[in-house]
Design a protein around this nucleic acid. Structure first.
Lengths: 347, 347
DNA sequence: GCACGAGATGTAAACGTTTTCCATTACCCT
DNA sequence: AGGGTAATGGAAAACGTTTACATCTCGTGC
């Protein structure tokens, strides 16, 4: 009676025995095939296949001194759901990593000081070889920590108050919002408001700067009461838009630092009986799937999160291979997508 | 000049030397403290602290033959974002796991046959000790696969066509939708429609059954044209609601199998100039954060995803410790939250 | 006074790899 | 023929733990 292969129990020793070679040779066949003659290579591969051999990652990792794992800490706020853009990024990271045979270790943590503890656990506990960060702050303590501990990492976004070089991939938010504001101004708007992100977030500054620059270039004054700071939630977009509409001189166009807030803005307009894209224009940022389905469809700046995730993996692998940080800094150009929530001001 | 402790390089041998004991004793102090005398225990702990020693998980894992890791595969569809409820579940899982010192390995995969490959990689590659599944189908191949390979796992949701026992935690969707439908009927609705989930999803059946049962119990006929199947996206809720409104006899109330579709329903109503909660009632399922902020606020059935994540970890740990699957099956009762999108039918 | 058990510690083997040396063989060139 | 070199494969030492087993030291009961 033929024994069915017990695929779970084959180790390198069994394969070596089966192929009539030493375990060193088996290992070489798998890691360094050209170091071994074609004939024995064939023999070993056959034996391995016959036994259903898969190298045990635990042994490999100990021997190599690497965890073969990349870590991500997702900021998950207490009261509300984390932005689903993280899932999108995760998907991109996962695609890239599985290709490279690396694992993705995910932790969630409420944003704040406790966050750093998660990083410590991953780094000082030697659980990961590298990290991916997102949602950077202007002077991001996580980056400082990782730089200090010399842990390889890549960043989605920049951290403008840190001058030591580190690898990052960012979208040019200034350019994006400058373009968006220019577009609105070209349509004839003179009263363009801005609902920004929490000011400690790095991209908040860029997007604001793009807005200011466009106004400046057009010779329009910057009115303080038209520049508000939201918390990126739909609800805050809603609330702040109502506040804008209640001003003595309400704006005719609103730039929102993300789509979620733009959705809130659309809701506020609707509630006030104002037609978005006609009476008041709205432009968001991110291009979340929902943006297709609002009424009117939301004009926004596209961020290709999944692609960015894939690229971040490539950069991290390069970093792990020794590429200097300076050579791993990319800024992508966002794409302004006009769908209908923008339009010329009325009369 | 005092050398600062090089925290990254201390291994168990160094600690042993520093404390003047053997490495076995150091290990015992950490894993089995009562096996060693108070005096030496103290000495070892001090030495460990002085050197900043942290056991290297790679060594532990190899020795223990466990990856100390739990895996999750998130279905991330190509075109659109994955449901953010997964992030919420992830947060709950993470909280539970970090308490237990386990890592969370996350993979994403488009739903479908390729999904199983991800599971194989995790399981046959010995990368995880256990798994968490979610978004189950009626006869879920992933569960069959894991049962066959005798891998410990727990499930968020059930899989009704699988009769072998396995550990799960589910919300009683039938009861939830029965209650929701009863509520609408009690308000006076006689034309209650149902926008369901893809029928292969296990919970789709339960929610539908609850709806049918409530109608039956009230002696109301089940009209086929009022029972539709969506894909859980906002857009499909929108589209199907329009279809319902175009019927010769449109419903006065709509039950949606998730909140995202309910949001779409609200949008469709608004577009048709119908007041939700007055002219047409809508009830969703999940209680996503957005449900607070719709107009009117969305009535829905609450699912405590984060808590469920935490509980799932406890169950998985129990499972890993040998608790039989039969003792790890829980069904929680959902809570109907009335916010305003439901109301009596007009006239 | 002595065997005995309990308690505390040390020794060494294991976990499954990769990789550094060596040893052997074969080959080529002079 | 002899010596250098390349190709090939094996032996053994890591990697950092945990743990079975052996050893040693006491106190204790006889």
């Amino acid at each position: 009676m033929p024994r069915s292969p017990a695929p779970t129990s084959a180790d390198i020793r069994k394969v070596a025995q089966e192929a009539g070679v030493s375990i060193a040779t088996v290992s070489r066949v798998l890691n360094n095939p050209q170091r071994v003659s074609a004939a024995t290579r064939e023999r070993v591969l056959e034996a391995a296949a016959r036994l259903g051999y898969r190298p045990n990652p635990l042994g490999q990792r100990l021997r190599k001194g690497r965890a073969e794992t990349v870590g991500v800490v997702i900021p998950a706020p207490q009261g509300r759901f984390a932005d689903s853009f993280f899932l999108e990024l995760l998907a991109g990271l996962g695609e890239g990593l599985s290709g490279a045979g690396l694992d993705l270790l995910v932790t969630t943590s409420p944003p704040g000081p406790q966050e750093l503890a998660s990083y410590q656990r991953l780094v000082e506990g030697k659980r990961v070889d590298g990290l991916v960060l997102a949602r950077t702050r202007q002077r991001d303590e996580r980056i400082l920590y990782l730089l200090e501990h010399k842990v390889p990492f890549v960043v989605h976004g920049r951290s403008d108050l840190i001058h030591e070089p580190f690898p990052y991939l960012d979208i040019d938010g200034e350019r994006g919002f400058r373009q968006a504001a220019q577009h609105l101004i070209a349509l004839g708007h003179r009263a363009v408001a801005f609902i920004g992100a929490p000011h400690e977030l790095n991209f908040a500054q860029h997007r604001l700067a793009g807005y200011r620059r466009a106004l400046e270039e057009a010779g329009l004054p910057l009115r303080r009461e038209w520049v508000l700071e939201g918390d990126l939630s739909e609800e805050s977009g809603y609330r702040l838009t109502l506040a804008l509409l209640d001003l003595p001189r309400p704006p005719t166009a609103i730039l929102c630092a993300n789509d979620l807030m733009a959705l809130g803005a659309l809701r506020a307009l609707r509630e006030r009986g104002l037609k978005a894209g006609q009476e008041v224009s709205v432009i968001g940022y991110d291009d979340i799937p929902q943006a297709h389905y609002t009424d009117p469809p939301l004009s926004t700046l596209h961020q290709p999160f999944r692609e960015m995730g894939r690229r971040l993996v490539e950069m991290l692998l390069a970093r792990l291979a020794g590429t200097p940080a300076e050579e791993l800094q990319e800024i992508w150009v966002p794409e302004l997508i006009l769908r209908g929530s923008d339009g010329p001001p009325q009369s």
